[in-house]
Design a protein around this nucleic acid. Structure first.
Lengths: 250, 250
DNA sequence: TAAATTTGTCTATTGATATAGACAACTATA
DNA sequence: TATAGTTGTCTATATCAATAGACAAATTTA
């Protein structure tokens, strides 16, 4: 009994997702798993068209999207080359920290504070933090960058009374961990993580510098002190084409 | 400072993903998070068209896709109604088991064995199982179903010598855990899980009964005996519109 | 230098996607 | 029984997506 799963360079027509977008997805995946070696030339357009069973011009649409995105570089007469590295592997575990998690894979990373506000807690934020619905919470909007590329976009909520001024601390230190330390939190643990995926919306596209049609991984998490007190509720989006999540011991 | 993240019912044009597909995605998400209550009528088509900033006919395309998919039911003169429940929450932790994980949320679930074969181990399978590349492994292709709907599609690889006959055991018991028990494995642990997301390919569409353009969550995992011996390497796909992954203590 | 290979550009045609408007069919309600 | 509100169907038009073919432009190789 044989199931031809790996032969499935298959493409869906009249699906609501254009062929060039599907092919761009497949090429991103092939690059991510090391099928198309970094710095090496891709197969020529006619070969790719053959491989995916589409017209050469359709392949060209996919390639030009990836060129716009900075993944490929096409050179007339020579070929088309892979620029970007494999996907980053973002670890999620008991002590999930942005910077330490990517240390081994990147040379530079930081968190930029995009915006902050005080707002009444929504239902899910209140539940996550163990507060009454409508209680004041501080929201921090952040973007994680590694080697100059955005790898995450997150919103974090903190109880306003307890963490007044965390926005300034965040702006100054560029680190959630360092900011929490100023409030006497030396350690914190990941209590829960719920994971989903969806198409990137307009906000994601702008924040994460994605091409329309991209997919984002979404995590909704609660961080607690070692004695179980909730301190942070967060929703993070990761571009699926650049990041995979590696689950380690919680 | 205010960031209008939740107001983002935004839509991307000329993205390679058609508007009706994007709107269908958003409606699925709204249903999943309980925005459109179960059994209640959706807003009328003209209101939805207004809300998403598109023509009524475009909304109709999205709705008819979800009707084909069994998520909505449209009744002329009355309205359009939500049929399906919220997303299942599939727990992933140290002892990830299909059936027990969904027990609380479903009334019936089982694993169907679709196919099995003996094949030489690929690079990644060999690495995961600690075997030499090319060593014989048994591959089991399975589909997990809950309350009559497919919720996962997995390929599992086992060392052929050690687990000869596991395909028959699987066909008979309908359970990985029970099958492994026949080989003296009373307990096993999840060693590693790597998570990504992509558009469903043709195989996923058929196996999981999805509409083209759907998104799948992909996990690549290794299960080991309590003393750390690898016994199973697996790749699973979950339809993102029906399943979310809940990470618990590993 | 000549030939082969590869990407870039152009024209043309077909089908899918999206918008627009009008009206029919059906349901609930005043 | 009207009337208002809702989904269903039809026509028309414009744009995007995909295929097809031809040839130009640049690079590598014989």
């Amino acid at each position: 009994m044989m199931v031809g799963r790996l032969a499935a360079d298959s493409i869906e027509r009249r699906s609501g997702v254009s062929l060039w977008r599907q092919i761009a997805d497949k090429m991103l995946h092939a690059i991510a798993i090391g099928d198309f070696t970094e710095n090496a030339a891709l197969p020529p357009e006619v070969a790719l068209a053959e491989r995916y069973g589409v017209n050469r011009h359709t392949v060209r649409s996919a390639i030009s999207a990836l060129v716009r995105e900075g993944v490929l570089r096409a050179e007339q007469g020579r070929g088309t080359f892979v620029l970007s590295r494999k996907r980053l592997s973002y670890p999620i575990g008991a002590r999930t920290r942005f910077s330490t998690g990517l240390q081994a894979q990147t040379t530079e990373r930081h968190i930029a504070l995009l915006a902050s506000s005080v707002e009444p807690a929504s239902q899910r934020v209140a539940e996550g933090l163990g507060l009454a619905k409508g209680a004041d919470v501080i929201r921090l909007e952040t973007r994680g960058e590694a080697d100059g590329r955005p790898v995450s976009r997150a919103a974090g909520w903190f109880e306003a009374r307890r963490f007044a001024g965390i926005d300034a601390a965040m702006a100054e230190t560029g680190s959630i961990t360092a900011s929490l330390a100023r409030f006497g939190i030396d350690d914190y643990l990941r209590q829960s993580t719920v994971l989903s995926a969806r198409h990137a919306d307009a906000a994601d596209l702008a924040d994460l510098d994605l091409q329309p049609g991209a997919i984002v991984l979404v995590t909704v998490a609660v961080n607690v002190t070692p004695d179980g007190q909730p301190i942070q509720f967060s929703e993070s989006r990761f571009p699926a084409e650049r990041v995979e999540l590696k689950l380690s011991a919680l």
